[in-house]
């Protein structure tokens, strides 16, 4: 298990990285390396050149900007997970990060790396889809923004061009009165989830759900936004029956994979179970938040 040979380039700036990515046929970006380096060792990834971003300190930050939370692509999972700003403004992101692998992995793994890798079973792409995050990409032609909902379109496939770099992820701040929940079904602690549901529900002053953001990981070739379930919840008081009905809608929209860990039917059924649990738990938390606890 030793990697095939490759050239190594330590990027000195974002522009330098982009230039290197454009210069080689099969260049790959090295960020946290927690997925890439094992793939190199297995010789499943065989880039000609690795472009290492790790010295680009100006890509690592968490800051509030224009009513959004801006997180630099090279910010480590652990930094984001423990950032006070994130806990306060986008708690669903902090909750989800606690489920990413283990602390040692989160010490190295980066936010941008997880998004760019685009694994449909992973937490970050799914949370980004649920929360309508936007991604700032830079390429030789300049900068563009892509909504999370338009970014992921297949297994490990994203809108990122080979010579583009993801530089920043912008997260809308969740409104007051929002409760969050992450429900994951994993075989072992820290494993990729068989299915995971991410939910953020906002309760209005009259006790009615005013905003619902729900997504599912492990449910399709790309992270799935459960907008039909969200629509069913908005305007309701999220009774047990409401939660169950919304979760059934969520499950019906899934098209999960069949693999050695679980058949597709099982995953679909679990999407309904976890969906209901996540909705109920998020709603209970919204209740407590509104009660001023």
């Amino acid at each position: 298990m030793k990697a095939a040979a490759f050239d190594y380039h330590r990027a000195t700036s974002v522009d330098d990285a982009i230039q290197q990515l454009g210069a080689a046929d099969d260049a790959k970006v090295l960020a946290g390396g927690q997925s890439l380096v094992p793939l190199l060792a297995m010789r499943l990834a065989r880039p000609t050149v690795l472009v290492d971003l790790n010295r680009l300190a100006d890509l690592a930050y968490v800051r509030r900007e224009n009513g959004e939370l801006a997180i630099g692509a090279l910010t480590r999972h652990r930094t984001v997970e423990t950032a006070e700003l994130v806990r306060r403004d986008v708690p669903l992101l902090a909750d989800a990060l606690a489920h990413v692998g283990h602390v040692t992995i989160r010490n190295r793994g980066t936010i941008g790396g997880s998004i760019a890798h685009g694994d449909p079973a992973a937490e970050l792409p799914a949370v980004a889809v649920a929360l309508d995050a936007t991604f700032r990409l830079r390429g030789p032609g300049g900068e563009r923004s892509v909504a999370a909902g338009d970014f992921f379109f297949g297994y490990l496939m994203t809108a990122l061009e080979p010579d583009e770099l993801l530089t920043e992820i912008r997260w809308p701040v969740l409104p007051q009165g929002t409760g969050c929940a992450v429900e994951e079904l994993t075989r072992r602690n820290g494993d990729f989830a068989l299915v995971a549901v991410f939910a953020a529900l906002t309760m209005g002053a009259d006790g009615v759900c005013t905003q619902a953001r729900i997504s599912v990981a492990g449910a399709a070739a790309a992270p799935l936004r459960a907008d039909n379930a969200e629509q069913a919840l908005i305007g309701s008081r999220v009774s047990a029956a409401d939660a169950g009905a919304a979760a059934d809608r969520l499950a019906a929209a899934t098209d999960p994979p069949n693999d050695i860990h679980a058949p597709a039917d099982y995953r679909r059924e679990m999407a309904a179970v976890l969906g209901r649990r996540a909705i109920q738990r998020a709603w209970a938390q919204a209740n407590r938040t509104n009660a001023g606890e």
């Binding site: 190594y8 090295l30 390396g33 927690q34 380096v37 094992p38 060792a41 690795l50 290492d52 652990r78 602390v103 040692t104 992995i105 010490n107 190295r108």
Partner: peptide, 9 residues
């Protein structure tokens, strides 16, 4: 902080 030395160059 801890790191897995097999996952780094």
């Amino acid at each position: 902080s801890t790191a897995r030395s097999c996952c780094m160059l």
